[in-house]
Design a protein around this nucleic acid. Structure first.
Lengths: 342, 342
DNA sequence: GTACAACGTGCAATCGATTGCACAATACTA
DNA sequence: TAGTATTGTGCAATCGATTGCACGTTGTAC
């Protein structure tokens, strides 16, 4: 195995100093062109590769950023990462992924770990459990950019890139009203998370603006999976006053709802409309395609990355930046009662 | 902003040497218990956190591993990552994700980058384009473990964790034959990749064993998406001798096939059976659930990680290890012609 | 011919943690 | 009481690259 070649090896080969080699490699104007050429040639010959660890230790910049999220194998999050990489890789940054599994303690742990690894910034979507903000302050205290994406929490000094969940929910609900739905139920997941709370608020406002009375019994908090959607729908349909539409804050729940409705022979969208949230790919795959609010995860990732890059370049002047992306409602069969919407 | 505290700060506070502090923190037996206690206390007070970069530089072990894959936002790959993290995080490793976008040059670039970052190992699923193995040899020359997962390429000294694609394809095809299908077509994606070639071979062997003549016209190479699946199916059905089943090496293509077949009123599974490959979540979401071969991506990730851990512990003795995982066919509605399969 | 500028390199410290070797202090043996 | 173990720390080099300052050379001006 060939030991790695360092600038010292190059220096020795040319009978000069490592300092000169370093300067030559960095194209320092104080080094003569001749020397530069020789260094470059020798570097190539010896197959020299810079040791990023050494550079990082010296400069204090690791050129790594941490990306923290609940679970990586969720469509939304893996797409966000994709977006982040698109922006950061070309700038020479590597991305270290850490999962929290929706656990506050684990979140604090991975953040500590990232700080120890000297990351240059942290992009995070907070876990559902998180209440304490101490670990976030740790980051800011070290003057490391902290950017929340999608799920944020209020921390002074941190930036955020989020979706206008309120708006998305409002549009989805309004769309259902426009389709003639009168009794619109809502599935939510975790009201302690801002995103879900905002969706409820958007939903409520749309009802209000549409002249529909808000019905407490039509709002159900469930897990974000198909089964939960089925069960919840079953219960809703057994109410004395069942809904004629569901706006679900989660796509899997919307799917579960549809599956149950079909099983009891409710016609969709003629008798019942459903709209989901997230625009997960599967919503387009079904025969009965599902309307959903798109969160543009790629754009969110790219935007979060850009905000990071801005902050890193502004040095000491720490300007919090709050970017809010606009969602777009994808209207599909599950809620297309009227031809006019085609 | 509080400057980071180092072992020197602790040393100064206690009027001892950084060397002693280092030993105390590492629980070196040559340090007295008293000193250890004091160091630990002071470390806590000063909120000392080890600098992983410095440790890495000194030890030559960065505790980072690179994971290279075509695209992160593919169900299969994001699940593999999940599996890798499950094994590696508890051991103190961080994972650096790099995408190749199926591009050989990019693949070589990210590998170079990972090597410069001094990763302790590289787990990779090669890009479709890759022919040259030079960049892989670079890794091995530095005595860094190289583990292929899913898509491998022959490189002496590298380990691999793959799926028995041959077996998976064989079972899928045999299952179709057992269902009474006589003319089974096959969708493949890229025959230059071992995994797809193996699937074809398994398909062929199953046909042979089932006494069915292989029909060249029933094997179609297409992209792995719904549209391609639709089109290819359309063409197949227009043949003088159309198939009565499709074993697709890709789930999206299988879905495309089903969509087209429905559109021309072919009954599934009564008149036509379809089996996909990958067991993508959406295959279970449809009303007409799709049979598919499961690749157990989580297990694959975990296994690849374990192989890495073994190699890293065996030091110089470099033993190549080839693990082959067994796929499992998930039989669902799209191919369940006979009740006996229930 | 002297003075000063410009140019090109080398010296040595630094980033933070680790470690072989040396050495002082104490404990134990004869 | 001298001599040898044992124990606990310090010294200084090291990992690989960077950088402020110093210094020797050559060139130019008067």
């Amino acid at each position: 195995m060939s030991k790695k070649t360092t600038i010292y090896d190059i220096a020795k080969a040319l009978n000069i100093t490592a300092a000169t080699v370093s300067r030559a490699l960095n194209n320092n104007p104080r080094i003569s062109d001749d020397t530069k050429r020789m260094v470059l040639e020798t570097a190539a010959e010896l197959n020299y590769k810079p040791n990023r660890l050494a550079m990082a230790l010296k400069s204090g910049k690791s050129k790594n950023v941490g990306v923290v999220l609940p679970y990586i194998n969720r469509t939304f999050f893996s797409n966000v990462i994709h977006g982040i990489e698109e922006e950061l890789n070309p700038m020479g940054y590597n991305v270290i992924i850490c999962q929290t599994h929706e656990d506050e303690k684990k979140e604090a742990d991975v953040i500590q770990n990232l700080l120890n690894a000297q990351v240059d910034g942290i992009l995070i979507s907070v876990s559902r459990e998180t209440k304490n903000t101490e670990h976030f302050n740790q980051i800011l205290k070290k003057n490391i950019p902290l950017i929340f994406y999608d799920r944020k929490i209020n921390v002074k000094g941190a930036s955020s890139v989020t979706l206008d969940d309120y708006q998305g929910a409002y549009e989805a609900t309004k769309h259902l009203i426009d389709q003639g739905c009168k009794k619109i139920a809502h599935f939510t997941v975790d009201r302690s998370l801002e995103i879900y709370e905002n969706r409820i608020q958007g939903y409520k406002q749309a009802l209000k603006d549409g002249g529909i009375k808000f019905n407490m019994n039509h709002v159900v908090t469930i897990e974000s999976d198909i089964e939960a959607g089925k069960e919840a729908t079953k219960k809703l349909m057994e109410l004395a006053n069942p809904p004629d539409a569901i706006f679900s804050a989660s796509d899997p729940c919307a799917l579960g709802a549809i599956q149950h409705l079909k099983s009891i022979n409710v016609r969709i969208p003629e008798d019942f409309c459903v709209v989901g949230f997230s625009n997960d790919p599967f919503t387009q795959f079904m025969e009965l395609t599902i309307s959903s609010v798109d969160q543009s995860p790629l754009l969110m990732g790219r935007t979060a990355a850009k905000v990071f890059l801005e902050q890193i370049n502004e040095d000491d002047i720490k300007i919090e930046k709050q970017v809010v992306l606009t969602p777009s409602l994808k209207i599909r069969k599950s809620s297309m009662k009227l031809d006019s919407d085609l």
